[in-house]
Amino acid sequence: MRIPQKTAASHQREELADIIRKDVRDCYQCMKCSSGCPFAEEMDYMPHQMMWLTNLGLYEKILNSKSLWICASCLACSSRCPRDIEPAKVMEGFRAMILRERGRTNVSPVIPKGVPRQAVIANMRKFRR
């Protein structure tokens, strides 16, 4: 990859900051989020990579990633991050940006058997896995 000359525009950065109210710059890439994420193996960019792309300003890669929709919002990452970044919240921020723009919420399920995200979360919460 070559780092492009133009990265995320300032209005995009502001929009994200406005939604998540977090400073992703605090992330020191310890990768704890990814090491505990139950879906990391299914993702094209793991949580720590999503944080890093955020800092590099490579929003396009994030907005086009599968990871945003694979993330189950289980909050494992957020509960463990030593820098309090709350990656789940950051991802939610990007999802919100997409949804706002697309003006619709029907995003196709990506898990093979078609299980919607919410069901997975419910399952996680019940069985603590």
């Binding site: 990859m1 070559r2 780092i3 890439q29 990579q49």
Partner: peptide
């Protein structure tokens, strides 16, 4: 190389 993304990285 960007260890976080795990890919070769070029910067002008």
């Amino acid at each position: 190389y960007d260890g976080s993304l795990g890919e070769q990285t070029e910067i002008e």
